[in-house]
Design a protein around this nucleic acid. Structure first.
Lengths: 230, 230, 230, 230
DNA sequence: AATGAATGAGGGTTCATTCAT
DNA sequence: AATGAATGAACCCTCATTCAT
């Protein structure tokens, strides 16, 4: 029931527009190298307007990280809750799409921002540890623990496994906005394929083997690509 | 056989001292936030002297990345050449120590620098892709390929496996200089242990299983820690 | 006979309310440091409304000085006209109360405004010289001149005496809004007492002495104060 | 024994040059209206150089007030100490020249600065109360007290008399840099003459009268008012 | 070779003023 | 009449770089 005069409508949209502009520029040029005025211009407003919504460039940065990442984390958590199948399936059907979406979206750049700026912003460190690392880790940990409890997975050290599983994904995000954005450097791997292959490889290390001659389940997607084998 | 006077000795050491100072400060405070004068002060010289050795702050940055990383890569390469055992052993006995050493050294910070600054310095992108990513990837790839050729490892997609193996290590380096340096955030994993566990977990996914009741090779180091298994 | 609606009444009161707000803030925080919006807020209206009544912040300042001081001067002039006693009595019974009232009122702050801002506003200089200094000086001068003519006062240089009489009063006003408002600084004199004592002391220098053995009246206010003697 | 390279010589002179420039501009245009760059330009250096010597515009302001006024106060104090004649002579021969010199010098502008800025700078209030008002008042008070003790002066309330004597001088300084600098306004009094006349007039009110033929006439008017006495 | 005083471009932020609603 | 969102000129301050000593 927004009374929404055109004026009001713009006003409501501003913060998000500024956040989008800021995210794109901060990731592309770095926080220090981005002028407040550039952010404003990209959001289609003047320098002064930016300061109507965010008290300073630093507050804008914090807002970008907070707002953009929170939404993503919440979405991920929701999806996991709604799913109760075997661990391997859960990882394949929820974790993989979640990272794929993240990698496709602009939000992936937030990781670069965090890497770049945490040390100067205790706020960001707190937020990130509390609202991203902690719940994210816990989420995946729970899946693995459940899998172990059900005998689907070997009783590995869970925190280690969580990181083995997740850290490469974050590196993918970082890569996208760093070397990957430099044109020059074709690392030679396809991100989406890597996500799936990496999950499978890790699962290979995690799942309980049918001890005997059982036909190797080898459940692994066909994997085309030039290095296909055998 | 430097017969150098102390003066001469200082002069020869200058570039390296400046590089050390710059690395430490750039990693800690970020390139933009580090003043040229601070670098000079930390190296024990005056502002002007810095410019006697490096043409600009940017050149100093490039030199830091180039010099510090090249040495490490060369060292790693050398160690691999000298070793001809099974792939799994090679990874355990050369790769692990190499990353452990890197993580302990200041050089680990270079990864953060690269993440932070590549986009603004095509030079760095080129150098990093050509002198770090490429040879590093090739090195590990060769090990895996040899292992596959010898039947020790399953015929996986090698580039994927290389990244699954290596990316978490880089993340460890990044973490050390970002969240890990913020005091607040105890991620709860011990880096050295993670390195070993991660390699083992990945090897589990890579090695060829003795299909039958054969003694499960399950070669996995004792892994003390609370989640010990069985 | 304003039959005004409340709305109308507010509207009529606006200019005065804005002037009050502006006077208080300009004196307290200085003209440059007071934001137009603050004045509006203190007057209970919005930023835009201020500009409906005054064309600019500068015009507002000029209006404050003009309106607030003119009323006071007119009042003073009127009182003097109505009084025809001896000069000394006139000073005691009209001048002293006039300054006492001024000092108690917010208007005293206008002197600070004038001191602070005249140089940037020829308008203010003109107005102040013409409407305040000139008539004020003339008024007191006339009293003294009359006293001299009547033989009550010594034939001193009138302009000098006027200033000896009046300048300290203005300093009192300035003090009230500067050091006197800083909490820290108790100058140790009571303004109202000083006004009276100062007038008496100056009169002592002005009046014609009865040459002869007239019983020394030594009439001097009790002077508590630590330095009383004899 | 200044080794004084030309370089060094400039460096030593800078603070004073900047202070002079700042004093002149702050008094003329007001603190807020003076750009840091203008001060620098007037001192013959660039914007950046100003900040080599003063951490901020505010610190520059404080330094102006502190440095410039302290010297003057110290000078005045010294002169009084060296003099032991009758009070009236002391005032005439030390106080008058002191104020004449002050009025002629740029330092007189500092009073305007203090009036304008004390409220925003507790530092200034403290300094001014402690280092200027307090010692200045005490100095003159001591003269009067001595005069009273010696029977040269009537036993008036000393603090009051001090202010009657001194406040007009300060107003003179203020006037010089405010209305007096506006071209338009010829108040019609000559400052130097006023200083002398004012001191004489006040002395007339202070000195003990030779009773004419008889005992001191000490004529002081009836003074009614609520403090009426008897 | 080394120093550090000096420079000035650059960018964050404020706030008087306007004007669509 | 009243509002308050938007604007952009203005100004403080930082710091990479230069160069006289």
């Amino acid at each position: 029931m927004t009374t929404a005069t055109p004026r009001q409508r713009r006003k409501d949209a501003r913060p998000a527009e500024l956040l989008d502009a800021a995210l794109a520029l901060f990731v592309e040029k770095g926080f220090a190298r981005t002028r407040a005025e550039e952010v404003a211009a990209r959001a289609g407003v003047s320098k002064g307007t930016l300061y109507l919504y965010y008290a300073s460039k630093e507050e804008l940065l914090k807002a970008v990280i907070r707002e953009r990442l929170s939404a993503e984390i919440a979405a991920g958590a929701g999806q996991f809750e709604r799913f109760a199948g075997p661990a391997a399936e859960l990882l394949r059907e929820v974790l993989i799409p979640w990272w794929e979406r993240l990698l496709d979206s602009e939000v992936s750049g937030v990781f670069k921002l965090v890497i770049t700026e945490v040390r100067h912003f205790p706020d960001i460190a707190d937020f990130y540890a509390r609202e991203v690392v902690e719940p994210g880790t816990r989420l995946v940990a729970r899946i693995l623990e459940r899998g172990i409890a059900r005998g689907e997975l070997r009783p590995v050290d869970v925190p280690t496994a969580v990181h083995s599983l997740v850290l490469p994904m974050i590196m993918l995000c970082l890569h996208k906005h760093t070397l990957g954005a430099c044109g020059a450097a074709p690392v030679g791997i396809d991100p989406r394929r890597f996500i799936r292959d990496h999950v499978e490889l890790t699962l290979q290390g995690l799942v309980v083997r049918e001890p005997a001659g059982a036909h190797a389940t080898q459940r692994r997607p066909p994997a085309r690509g030039r290095k296909a084998l055998r």
